[in-house]
Design a protein around this nucleic acid. Structure first.
Length: 873
RNA sequence: GGGCGAUUGGCUCAGAUGGUUAGAGCGCUGCCUUCACACGGCAGAGGUCACAGGUUCGAGUCCUGUAUCGCCCACCA
């Protein structure tokens, strides 16, 4: 059973001079007022299409990349809506975490000091950018944690407004009544509830262990947040002293010599086999360290024997753990050398260390220890300069250190083969668009080297809903944490009191203390499906929307966001969080570099929206293939704008016929009798099939490209061919056929374009149709085929070819296109000649020809005889 | 080191399961102020489909290798 085309109104109103200006504001307001994109929660799960919209980091800048990928998702949302789904399309704001903290610090020039008490009279500072030059150079003001969080909330509220404005102008069909923020109460409640359940099922645990540590942020960071950066370094050749002579190792971290706990070489390395089990003395400090064999030691690297320090890199951690070595940590949380374990050094070594190295920053310590080693003769030769990859926190400025601390972990398969296999299987269950992106997920899962470290030593984030009892000495008993009741969530353990205690017991011996940490931002973001669908908050909504249909996101955060979300849903619901994921590419600048703020090549989208209009910007974005990086091209904006204008004008023509009296011919498809009209509709039916297939496969770009190609052909060929007849040149019935075909095709084309050009299509729709084009049904090919009946696409093709030949003849003769033609003689094959015969009158009229004859022949061709120049006399 | 993707006219890109003279748009050139559109229309020039082999009657399209670019991953002392 085919759906019929929407019925036009009785009275049409086609503007004299249609334009694009102001459409965004007008229709955004109308859609808001009419609730066009409101989620209909009476729909059951099968009738719903739910989208796990990426919450943009609101502390970041508005970026053309946002426009790009959010438009892709919006085209899918609009398509699904027109297919009759109730689209659940919320918007989240990611305002939680370090980027916000850092922005607040810089914006207001403040620093959070958790030791300070809350100041209830605190006044929001003037933004730095509005201060005088002198004031800008002032030191940051120290403020309490709660005041700091207030500032974070103030600033993110402003940022969120800017984002919403951008997205509204862009025409995202988001349900703006369904927004959330990753720091709001609901998100915090969900994050804390999920964590408590992880803890109760044994999926979350705490451990005292070496962790990667950013010395500037003074926080642990997770594997997923690392990046390698090439840095200059140098191999320093150091002499260790053994009973049978010196042993030489090479190191890029000589300042960690005081933290050296052993040497290590490959078990098969004959050069060092005699040393295994013996001890050697470290340079400068004279500490006895044992020489161990271990297969991870690479005989090819350096001198083939390495010093193990606690801790220079992740390999050190493995060796330390597997060889059960002692700990001699010297790097402190703030990136300076601290006090070593006195037992681990000779008295002379300790004295040297304290006099020369203790308290120095790492770089200074390295410089000084190299001087000392040179003086003692234990540095052999000159350091050999190299560049090598060094691990950084992706948002950090200094290399990561490894220090030992107590942290919360969440199991993610990094230490558990079964869980890892289950998560790989989830990756197979998920439908990836494009499919090859799954490999990145698998690479990541297979490369995990530990569980997910979820605690951060920061302030603006979701707290752990945990307290610890304090023993008689006032020390926390970490092994018996006090958990919050689910009903009390969200809690802030710094201000809320755990069950069974009173506030006056806080931080008192025998009392309690709150867990001071906050969760990793991904610990909240990994729950966006649960947050958006009301898990544990609104069971009815959850039932109708979870697991969600689509997760759109960028490829560089497959390892973080996509993976962590899959982990949480697997643990909590034993399911995928969504059935599809659409991975968008990046926007590149014309030099094919990824656009980024630091490179200063970011194009701001607001200017382009203003200059070219939202539909044009969306056109450019939707031309980017799924998962493909796309160069920013202002030329495409012009093309998009031209398309939108063309749509206005072609519509004005199609609807303005017959005196613009609003004769709704499209309701009576039996009116379509002319072969040309039927041929065009037959091709249009094919287009609908193609666009539908493309959209079902999440290939919005293909749907757009095909629709656009058809439309230009429609304008350039069909409209010209049909014009005379549509005006009534050959009688009412012939005109009605054209008018009905025009109305049907326009209705179809507007709906095919609606996901891409929501403003101009809605504008035209409003001239002659009831309701919104965005809630109209997606075009139905079978209805078009009914109207096309015996329509032969070849008739349209042949007509266009002949018209082209006539135009060429006129152009070559430098005549205007309306120049009269005496005769056109077409020679064609039998079938094409027959097809052409049926549309000959349309072609003759469009060519302004006195006669047109079609002959059957072996040599196809078109002979055009132009009318002669009129006699000037 | 492992993997993924890309390489088509000056530029930005299409070319699904291999099949007639490789397509658009921008830019360029020329013409046309035509009653939907000068925020326009019509037409034209312009391509050894990165390179080298191979499969096939036939390859931009499949296979192998090479090069360049981008990205992801990896326990680089």
């Amino acid at each position: 059973m085919s759906t019929t085309a929407p019925t036009p109104r009785e009275n049409w109103s086609v503007p004299e001079k249609p334009g694009l200006d102001g459409l965004e504001a007008r229709w955004d307001a109308a859609w808001e007022e009419q609730g066009t994109y409101r989620f209909d929660r009476t729909a059951d799960r099968d009738g719903v299409y739910s989208i796990d919209t990426p919450p943009p980091t609101v502390s970041g800048s508005l970026h053309v990349g946002h426009v790009f990928s959010y438009t892709h998702t919006d085209t899918i949302a609009r398509y699904q809506r027109m297919r009759g789904k109730s689209v659940f399309y919320p918007m989240g704001w990611d305002d939680n975490g370090l980027p916000t903290e850092r922005r607040v610090q810089n914006y207001y020039l403040v620093q959070c000091d958790p030791a300070l008490p809350y100041d209830p009279d605190f006044v929001t500072p003037t933004p730095v950018s509005e201060r005088s030059k002198d004031e800008q150079k002032a030191m940051p003001a120290h403020i309490s944690r709660r005041n700091f969080i207030d500032l974070c909330n103030t600033l993110t509220a402003e940022d969120e407004k800017a984002f919403e404005n951008l997205f509204r102008t862009l025409g995202l069909s988001v349900d703006w009544e369904r927004t959330y923020a990753t720091i709001d109460d609901r998100s915090r409640r969900v994050a804390q509830r999920a964590f408590l359940r992880n803890l109760q099922r044994g999926e979350a645990y705490q451990a005292e262990a070496p962790v990667l540590w950013d010395v500037d942020f003074q926080s642990a960071v997770a594997q997923a947040e690392l990046e390698d950066r090439e840095r200059d370094g140098a191999y320093h050749r150091l002499a260790f002293h053994g009973p049978d002579g010196d042993v030489f190792i090479e190191t890029t971290r000589p300042e960690l010599l005081p933290a050296c706990v052993a040497l290590v070489a490959h078990p098969d390395d004959e050069r060092y086999q005699p040393l295994f089990g013996t001890t050697v003395r470290t340079p400068l400090f004279g500490v006895e360290v044992e020489v161990h064999p271990h297969p991870l030691a690479d005989p090819e690297k350096g001198s083939g024997i390495a010093m193990i320090c606690t801790f220079g890199d992740l390999t050190d951690v493995i060796w330390w753990r597997e060889l059960q070595l002692p700990t001699r940590a010297i790097v402190t949380a703030n990136g300076r050398l601290g006090t070593p374990d006195a037992d681990a050094m000779t008295p002379e070594g300790l004295a040297l260390y304290e006099a020369e190295l203790a308290g120095k920053k790492i770089a200074g310590a390295q410089q000084r220890i190299v001087e000392l080693l040179r003086e003692s003769g234990e540095l052999v030769g000159d350091p050999e300069r190299i560049t090598h990859p060094v691990k950084f926190y992706e948002k950090g400025d200094r290399p990561l250190e490894i220090i030992t601390s107590r942290q919360w972990y969440l199991r993610n398969g990094g230490r558990d083969a079964d869980l890892r296999a289950a998560l790989l299987e989830r990756g197979h269950e998920l439908h990836w668009h494009p499919p090859h992106m799954r490999v990145r997920y698998e690479n990541w899962v297979n490369g995990l080297n530990g569980d997910w470290l979820v605690s951060r030593q920061r302030f603006f984030g979701v707290s752990f809903p945990i307290w610890y009892p304090l023993d008689a000495e006032g020390l926390p008993v970490h092994d018996s944490p006090i958990l919050a009741d689910e009903a009390s969530l969200p809690v802030d353990p710094a201000t809320d009191v755990p069950p069974g205690y009173t506030e006056d017991q806080r931080d008192q011996p025998g009392g309690f203390t709150g867990d001071p940490d906050v969760m990793d931002t991904w610990a909240t973001s990994s729950l966006t499906p649960q947050i958006a669908t009301g898990w544990g908050e609104d069971p009815d909504l959850f039932e109708r929307t979870f697991p969600m249909d689509l997760r759109p996101q960028a490829h560089e955060i497959i390892r973080t966001w996509l993976f962590s979300t899959a982990v949480r849903a697997h643990l909590e619901h034993d399911s995928l969080p969504w059935t599809n994921t659409a991975i968008s590419g990046w926007v590149l600048d014309p030099d094919r570099k990824k656009m980024s703020k630091s490179k200063g090549n970011v194009v701001t989208p607001l200017d382009h929206l203003e200059q070219f209009g939202a539909d044009a910007v969306r056109y450019w974005a939707a031309s980017g293939r799924p998962g493909t990086d796309t160069a920013f091209d202002e030329g495409q904006l012009k093309v998009g704008r031209r398309l939108a204008i063309k749509l206005l004008n072609a519509s004005r023509f199609a609807l303005g016929l017959g005196g613009g009296d609003g004769a709704a011919r499209a309701t009576d498809l039996s009116l379509v009798t002319e072969p040309l009209d039927r041929a065009m509709l037959a091709e249009l039916a094919r287009l609908v099939d193609e666009a539908t297939t493309a959209f079902d496969g999440y290939d919005y770009a293909r749907a757009l490209e095909r629709t656009e190609a058809f439309f230009w052909d429609f304008c350039d060929q069909y409209l010209e061919l049909v014009k005379g007849r549509a005006y009534g040149g050959r009688g009412d019935e012939a005109a009605w056929s054209a008018q009905a075909a025009l109305q049907l095709s326009l209705s179809t084309l507007l709906r095919l374009f609606a996901p891409f050009l929501p403003f101009v299509t809605e504008e035209v729709w409003s001239w002659w149709q009831e309701g919104s084009v965005h809630t109209a049904p997606w075009p139905d090919a079978s209805q078009l085929r009914d109207a096309a009946a015996d329509g032969d696409p070849q008739a349209f093709e042949a007509a266009a070819e002949v018209l082209g030949a006539v135009r060429r003849a006129k152009t070559e003769a430098k005549r205007s296109l309306k120049w009269p033609v005496d005769s056109v003689v077409v020679t064609e094959s039998t079938h094409r000649a027959a097809a052409l015969q049926g549309v000959a009158d349309d072609v003759r009229e469009a060519a302004n020809a006195a006669s047109l004859t079609v002959e059957v022949g072996a040599e196809p061709g078109v002979a055009v005889a132009l009318a002669p120049e009129p006699d000037p006399a």
